[in-house]
Design a protein around this nucleic acid. Structure first.
Lengths: 178, 178
DNA sequence: AGCATCATGTAAGTAGTTACATGATTAA
DNA sequence: TTAATCATGTAACTACTTACATGATGCT
């Protein structure tokens, strides 16, 4: 039950249309909670029906016409409730680690190329995060909001750093396998 | 489409019944691909229908009776194919980071306790992984299979190390917020 | 006989994915 | 006027989750 709350957060940061949100879920918010436009439109419908958001009054609210939403007080309250509520962490699922474990049984043929490809992807993502850090978090900015958002970005940077290091190590191990 | 392959891997490591698998998915394999018994039984049915596994011949294959499975050649081939095939990494979803970002908008009330709880959980998991490493990977063992499985465990250890460090840092930041 | 636990399932609901549909706007 | 793109959706399917059902086995 996190997608509606991801959308509420995004809309509180800035009222948006479905397509705006879709784009923001391709970067920013989407870095740790991805969503497709189909999911987003469906969820916007539900949030509106629940009275958590409302469409900004516009001329023609028809198909093909842009429709922006803003969060209502009930939506903000629900987001605050959810943020503070105890939640069990979801168990992870990582297909690459699974494939490595499978490779221990059926052989490593073809896997090395995948490791190299993943390394490249993670290095790119790391570079992107570092750009964002340089651009959005210069040393002088220091509000509470900035600190929290910077903390989230640091998690992303450190995670990508871990993956690049681990994949580099894994590739070196592959070269030393019989 | 990873669960069937997780099950094939587990069954190749050791033929098992549904409940055996469920237990193994609560540790080991489940550390990076979790599954409930309901998922497992359903998937065992499909894998059997597809000719990838078969039930070991037993007396009474009835409800309440233990039923063990082994992997057939077609199942091993499918696992090898899947292991080597290019796959796009799934975008991550992390509710805790999402909550932190929400907190930047609606306030951090109640979140600190959650961070402390998560830190405790990750520290425990890290301890567990280190026990496994000590027990299952003594320096003298060095087959290709061992190396690959050790690599997977190292990823787990390093990930948990990252989380404990990041959460410690986050808690310190929370204390310095206005 | 009664109860806990082992073991295998069914059913219903929710979330996420993939494929397709449709109208509006803009540029060649 | 056609094509590309913007923008909002519908439909069908797959994966996962939650709750419940049912028989077998062993213990007291």
């Amino acid at each position: 039950m996190s997608l509606p709350h991801a959308i509420l957060t995004a809309l509180l940061e800035r009222p948006s249309s479905g397509l705006d949100l879709t784009r923001r879920f391709d970067r920013s918010i989407g870095y740790f909670w991805s969503a497709t436009h189909q999911q987003i439109y469906r969820e916007l419908g539900r949030l509106e029906a629940d009275g958590h958001i409302r469409a900004l009054p516009a001329e023609v609210p028809a198909r093909g016409q842009k429709k922006s939403y803003e969060v209502l007080p009930a939506g903000r309250a629900e987001l605050a409730r959810w943020t503070a509520a105890p939640q069990e962490p979801k168990p992870h699922r990582d297909a690459l680690l699974l494939r490595l474990r499978a490779a221990a049984v059926v052989g490593t043929d073809g896997l090395k190329g995948e490791l190299a490809r993943y390394l490249d992807l993670h290095e790119r993502q790391l570079g992107e995060y570092r750009e964002i850090e340089k651009r959005d978090f210069p040393p002088e900015r220091d509000s509470a909001e900035d600190r929290l958002r910077h903390l989230v970005l640091r998690a992303g940077i450190d995670l990508e750093t871990f993956w690049t290091q681990w994949l580099t190590h894994a590739l070196a191990e592959f070269d030393r396998l019989p």
